[in-house]
Design a protein around this nucleic acid. Structure first.
Lengths: 265, 265
DNA sequence: CACTATTTGTCCGTATGTATG
DNA sequence: TCATACATACGGACAAATAGT
């Protein structure tokens, strides 16, 4: 895998369930978005790519054609394959607070679709997160957040029944959950967030307007009140092309030997 | 897509390049890891899954067989398909500092593989991140971080040439870059991190020991020194099953109307 | 005990997609 | 473009193991 000079050779494998032409297509697309192939530059020829990945010229040709269909490149006989990728829209960023920035400034609006709203016994994950009994009733909601019509986040929330009763279904479709919790008398003190990556399954993919198995940023959050009781468990799936999570860290000098980092505003 | 009761129906599509049996396999595997299908429970039968996803029984069968090959389920004729999924190893977590926790406590070791180490002109991303000229020379390194032999992160770093000269290739294979920077007289003041999700391409997939198109957590960081000059640009790709990014937030009461959140140690 | 329904295992024939030379 | 090989997916049919009536 690693060659003598320390460089890594890209590999495709016909043992994977994904067709070869699509594997190569993904690699090349990545390099275009990545700016490895700059805007206007020429991609390697069919013959070259065929040799690079050890496939036939027809397979390489098909990969390049898929790129052309996507509008990422333009192919001309005798001229080659040229990158025409337009710079992607700068994605939204969320700061540590998890709130959206630059939103008002951009004159854009986020709207919320409330897909599900019910009271039910929680799943295993929610049980352990909220530290409730297996047969406790919790309020569960599923929402889609949209920016200018395009969905960018899929949110599943679990709230203990007592707290959930302090607001209505309609409130949830218009107001953020954190605001609703405070309005209901809950004093939010601290929260725990975990960030990971997942794939879009067949359920969320159409809702977020992405392909099945597209990558998603997954943020899991448990919010605690002043009595250290979990009042909210939320799982958010975010489209990485629209939404990024930004964190500003600055060094804090303390008496201890260890220095620590904390976010700056 | 969304039915009358607000529930969403899972879908597979034969227009995707991925085979149907593998799409279904991914969905079911996700539900097992997700605990939607609890340990010991019976999965829907071949006939049921075939109807659910609108495929033939043979295709549904193959998806279930793949799960059995993975050891996630056990199949017995006349009995059904039973979940045998062992609870996954609790993944490592990094706190805000980006350093690993619980590592010493677990008696585990991380080792580093240095794959590439050279001085070259940076790509476009690195140029804008380090705010350097197009033809400046930067030090570039590619490393793999392993825990107990299994790789969990792929790190690409860019450091301005002057700073990069303060340590050797061998240093990088044993010491963290932040430590090396400080040893070289750089006083690190603040950093900017962006978290997103991507797919494993054909290059990193074998290096990280995951399938191509597996989801990865992507962390991009620019580190600045006291003079507000970028001294390090790092792109990290992390296996979400082994590595998670944890963030502890606590509310800080300020004089302003807005309340803010900051991480607690 | 037989009878039945369910579920998985195996086989066939056919059509389409993928990949090669 | 053509011929060839293999993988994918379908529908149908039948056998074998299990569980309940």
């Amino acid at each position: 895998m690693v060659e003598g000079d320390g460089r890594v050779k890209p590999m495709v494998s016909d043992r994977l369930p994904t067709p070869l032409y699509h594997q190569i297509y993904l690699i090349l697309r990545h390099k275009i978005i990545d700016h490895t192939y700059r805007d206007g530059a020429l991609l390697p020829s069919e013959k070259e790519t065929a040799e690079t990945y050890g496939v036939s010229r027809i397979t390489a040709k098909r990969a390049l054609n898929e790129l052309a269909v996507d509008g990422l490149v333009v192919r001309e006989r005798g001229r080659g394959t040229k990158v025409t990728h337009q710079e992607a829209i700068t994605p939204l960023t969320a700061n540590v607070e998890g709130m959206l920035e630059n939103l008002m400034a951009m004159g854009l609006e986020t709207e919320i679709d409330l897909l599900e709203f019910d009271y039910a016994t929680p799943g295993l994950d929610a049980v352990s997160a909220l530290a409730c009994a297996d047969d406790d009733v919790v309020q569960r909601s599923v929402r889609i957040r949209k920016l200018d019509g395009t969905p960018f986040s899929y949110l599943v929330t679990y709230v203990p029944e007592v707290i959930g009763k302090t607001y209505t279904r309609e409130d949830l479709a218009t107001t953020t959950l954190l605001t609703l919790l405070e309005r209901g008398g809950v004093e939010v003190l601290h929260a725990e967030q975990t960030l990971t990556a997942t794939l879009a399954d067949a359920i969320v993919a159409p809702l977020l307007g992405v392909e099945v198995n597209a990558p998603l940023l997954r943020i899991e959050r448990v919010v605690y009140d002043q009595a250290d009781r979990a009042v909210e468990y939320i799982i958010g799936l975010y489209r990485p092309d629209i939404y990024k999570y930004r964190l500003n860290l600055s060094r804090v000098q303390s008496d201890e030997k260890e220095t620590s980092w904390s976010p700056t505003r």
